[in-house]
Write a protein that binds this DNA or RNA. Sequence first.
RNA 1: GGCGCCUUGGCCGAGUGGUUAGGCAGAGGCCUGCAAAGCCUCGUACAGCAGUUCGAAUCUGCUAGGCGCCUCCA
Length: 429
Amino acid sequence: MRLYDTFSRSLVELPAAPGPVRMYFCGPTVYARAHIGNARPFVVGMWLRSWLRSRGYDAQLVHNITDINDKIYEAAPGASAGLAARATVWYLEDTADLGLGMPDHLPQATECVPQIVAFIEELVAADHAYASGGDVYFRVASFPEYGRLSGQKPDQVEQGEEPSALKEDARDFALWKANKPETEDTWWDSPWGRGRPGWHIECSVMAEEIYGPAFEIHGGGLDLVFPHHENEVAQSRALGHPFAGIWAHNGMLRFTGEKMSKSSGNVATIRETIDEWGREAVLVFFLTASWRKPIDFSPETMAQAAARRDTLRNAFTLEPAAHDESGWEAFAAALEDDFDTPAALAVLHEWASTRQLELLRRGLAVFGLESLAERRDAPPEVAELARRRAQARGARDFEASDRLRDELAALGWQMRDEPGGGYTLVHDA
RNA sequence: GGCGCCUUGGCCGAGUGGUUAGGCAGAGGCCUGCAAAGCCUCGUACAGCAGUUCGAAUCUGCUAGGCGCCUCCA
């Protein structure tokens, strides 16, 4: 199994099974209902865990909840903690409804503040950080490797606002920020006074809190490479921790050709997308693109995903062919090669058209889509309508037959006639 | 200004120096009372220009266009 690693800019072979493969994927900042783009790292992480486990790996996934952040203070002045708690529940509900199970751990920044403080103290003691006016900053100049993950040249980085007078160097970033009582209604005590952790240190600490100083894969959106992940590397490696072995960055989701962003408003949430298209269509949608490439979210691309879902599900209403286990190799090869889900999806379609239904069911199960193989039994009233329609058809009363078919359709059931008067009832999603 | 990515048929999306990816949509046909599902047939695409080569969509250069990031957007 090999995966593309942002740090080395190459495909990297994973250690042989059983590993372990410990994965940490950056999760959302909880201040609103998460949009569909936020689902991508979650889905990729859960799929990877699922696939690796099926290959005999001891794979784990940690997905953090960033519940201390500027955005939360801005979104709920004076009530940030309540919003963060609510939005955390939303995120857990929405991702759970994707039907992929849940990560092994979902650490929250608010639960790790003492460890964060201790980590910062170590950095200060090692001269990689310095306190300044109630803040603590990471001293970028003390870490020569800075910029290697992202390829950024620190002296070329565009400077936004005027550099803070508290910093020794404009490149330095905050590990701890002094409380600003007028805008921030939560704080924690620290050796540097009341305040709160910076974003980057939260992730370094949450990852290491669970895995220790070294683990195999760190994931997240491509937009996090700089500065977020660059800073995580700096913080942890400055203390001599190996930190992540592979950096796996998923491509961004774009909305009608443009990147979705919460700031532009009017973005589809995970919740809305599941409600409108169903969770299976959402998963098939993510399957259609390589995990590293951008993916366009639009009614058209979702409709195509829904059509593919139907094609795959329909295969299970047909007679299976003689099982041929050898076909599994092509599927496995696709996923072992940088988790190429579009290629794997092509194999699934191949199995659907050749009626390798056992392989198809197993392949779908890797992606949480085994439900497409399930045949729902018709409830009694549906079965009764179907019986009456079959009778009407038999009597060549096509007017009644068509009316009953419409009634069934209204209940979400398709009646597929078969030669000889038989029929199959299929529930459409 | 800096770092990086991308450009394949109506749409999505693989791929490789010379041989049909796959799907969705569409057209025709078979099947059906009519449908649905299924099956059969139909697309000769690879941004442009120049070069390397016996041969390039696949390698090189240039041009055009699109996208991400540049201190807290997954």
